[in-house]
Design a protein around this nucleic acid. Structure first.
Lengths: 178, 178
DNA sequence: ATACGGTGTGACAAATTGCCGCGCGACACT
DNA sequence: AGTGTCGCGCGGCAATTTGTCACACCGTAT
């Protein structure tokens, strides 16, 4: 099916990137793995691949920014955001930006493939209605405010009346998935 | 001033809907509040309002389904999804569907207005707003969950995935008003 | 060049938490 | 009465998380 669809994987974690790239290659994609923004942009400019799986575990902001820049270069690039630091706020931002989907780690290769192969999926989702854990709430709020301040950590920290240092530390932690 | 942009609020919780509706009305919107899907659809068909603020969990049905139907009726309806049970998955689905934004409760009227005004059409409606301090957010959530569990501290603590002891200690503290 | 603001880091004391246990009182069941 | 379960409040202590201060690096605007 995907005989030679070209795909770019962007991941700062070498090991993970290679594994993911290899897995996708095994499924018939022509894969290129980039570990930094410059390489990614160059590759998209020169090769204009069909897909891009972007995974910047650290720095949601740079991931979104990268997506934006890539889309500016190549309108039809189908971007899938993959992150270990998922939040509603960044998910919304990513999709509005034009990404075709947003997955939170850990996501298997199968899941990624499912998304890539489908054109546009809007599954029937029933909103779960369990009270959010406190930590989750905090994480989401952090992300929301951060987004509202264009990713400016200092500004967000001031707005929430907390120390920049503390915000930085909180952002480095992974969101709990309950 | 926005001279009567028309807005539909859909929420099955009467109290919340009224409060939100009232607040938005006070900001110059022409508001209609619907508590069920049929009413919402009828209103959109007949009035073709400019905006819709939809609670994701309306009774049994998913707000996503409703959004889809409303958009089918009125292409240009600007939908804002608002939910107390936010999840990345539903957020992604909502935006892909065509909603202009997705907010998780607790979201103040200010936040909603900020989103609406960003979506142009409604010119600058607010000068000052402040992004809730983290501590306050925490306090309010604590109280809400506690209420939901009839003041049962142990149960609330379990629900929020935190230790009872910690909850007790947090509750002993004053309702920080900054 | 210099100043300024944002960001990343290290270090360390102060505060908060996670987690243990104990005793009390309220109910429900046998 | 005896026994179990559950929720509540408190003490204590180690582990973690803050609040702060300090310093360095980078762009950008002056």
């Amino acid at each position: 099916m995907n005989t030679g669809a070209r795909l770019l994987v962007v991941d700062d974690d070498e090991a993970f990137g290679q594994v993911l790239g290899g897995a996708l290659e095994a499924r018939g994609f022509q894969v290129k793995v980039a570990q930094d923004i410059e390489t990614a942009i160059e590759h998209v400019s020169a090769e204009r691949p069909d897909y891009a799986v972007i995974d910047l575990c650290i720095g949601e902001e740079s991931g979104l920014l990268l997506s934006e820049r890539l889309l500016a270069i190549h309108q039809d690039l189908r971007i899938l955001i993959l992150t270990g630091y998922a939040s509603v706020a960044t998910a919304v931002a990513a999709i509005k930006l034009g990404a075709i989907h947003y997955l939170s780690k850990p996501a298997g290769v199968d899941e990624i493939l499912a998304v890539l192969s489908k054109e546009s999926v809007v599954p029937e989702l029933r909103p779960g209605r369990r009270p959010v854990s406190l930590k989750r709430l905090e994480w989401e709020h952090l992300q929301k405010v951060l987004q509202a301040h264009d990713g400016n950590i200092s500004a967000a920290a001031r707005a929430m009346d907390m120390h920049r240092r503390t915000l930085q530390r909180k952002l480095r932690k992974r969101p709990v998935n309950h």
